[in-house]
Amino acid sequence: MARKNRTTPDKRIWTAYLIIGVLLMAGVAFFSSWRAMRTAEERFCQTLEFVKSQSTSFEKHNDTITAKALRRTAVAAHQLAENPALDLSDPQCLNRQTEKLWLTGISVLGPDGTLRCESTTNGIGYDRFGDQLKNDAVLDVLSYPRKTYVKRVLLEDGSAVDVAAHRAESTELLLLAYRYTPAEFVEETALSIQSILDGYPAETSGTLFIVQNNQVVAANRPELIGQDVAGSPLAQGIRKAGAAEKLTHTRDWNGSGCYFGMFCHGRSFDLYAYTDEKIIFREALLLILTVLVGYILLVMILQLLRRRSAQEMELQKKEQERKYQTQLEEQNRKLEIALQHEGRQTAPSGSSCSI
């Protein structure tokens, strides 16, 4: 019966330990997961904000360089248009003006946009870049003599052509003045956004990439450059958050794996960041395991203390029983001695003799 009574409190204590442990681990798991996501969100926000500011500065710098080049070309186009001695039908005359104004070439277009005459110094002519010009906008210059159309045309090899269009004086012809810049010089004078992302290793900072016109133009993982994000499960998963700089769950490029990512808007681009959820919850898992081990150790210590306390109480109880038994034996011994003594005193007086 006593054993059964001891077993019942033990079951209750272990049940209490289990309930407290489950509640504790649930609380720790919730808090650590929430904290891990907030930390990842803050880290991504800081990274995206810095990359966005740097990229915007780079774009402004590059736009300034392009604007200066286009302005110089526009000035040359004005000089050509205002030159009364310029023969727009003589390639040799155009060639002399090309060398004088440090131009790559001069093209003369008719009112319908067809090429009438041209002079070029390196073979780069109207046929190389004409298709990339907005014909309606270019020809619109003919209706406004003081208007100038300028544009930087990027060729397929990375080189650039700075074009300026202006109406020739007292004619219905359009003058195109242009300068060609080789690809290597374009790269040297322009700041590359890619150089910013190269400073963020994907293993520690997550994957970062910049999108323009649904194409990845820069990334800290080279294999992503050129990817189309229009049908990407990853980009669509990040976009489903509906708001910039908000962490959301997504999938990898091929729709597999579990990731967290966010996006933000730049000056003329969108910037994305994502990382594997295992990396985000790695510290949270470590905290959960630490708390679990700590709780198990605490339960073991409590049980050890409880067992020692029970043993001490048992020893005290046995000691009290021993003392009580000793006192009882001593009292019995004294009582027996007293009875024996009393028996000796009453024996003579109780005897009688008759004569």
Rank of each mutant, 00 (worst) to 15 (best):
V299S: 12
G343C: 14
T7N: 12
Q212H: 11
L101M: 06
K240D: 08
R344G: 00
L287C: 05
T15M: 15
T207C: 10
G261I: 10
I13Y: 02
F263S: 09
E187F: 01
L302C: 15
F129K: 13
I337L: 08
G21P: 03
N213I: 04
D63K: 07
Q54S: 15
V211F: 02
A67E: 14
T148I: 15
T121E: 04
S143N: 06
R239D: 13
R282I: 05
P111N: 05
G261T: 09
Y274E: 03
T56G: 10
P9V: 08
A219D: 12
E223L: 07
G231T: 11
K52P: 01
K4D: 14
D87T: 01
Q97A: 10
C264F: 00
C93V: 01
A26S: 11
E172V: 04
L305R: 13
T250L: 11
E82Q: 14
M1F: 06
A26G: 12
L197W: 11
A190E: 11
Q212A: 14
L133M: 07
E169Y: 11
G130H: 08
A347D: 12
G206H: 03
G257W: 11
S119V: 06
E59N: 14
E188T: 01
E321C: 09
N214I: 02
N83Q: 03
M313T: 06
G113Q: 05
L176Q: 08
C264W: 01
A273L: 14
K278P: 00
R167F: 00
R251G: 11
F44S: 05
L285V: 05
A165H: 08
S256W: 10
G21K: 02
V51E: 10
L176G: 09
R322P: 00
L109E: 03
T207D: 03
R322A: 13
L139Q: 08
D136S: 04
N220P: 14
G237W: 10
Q132V: 05
A164Y: 10
R35I: 06
H61Y: 10
S143Q: 08
E223I: 05
T98A: 06
Y295F: 15
P201N: 01
D112G: 04
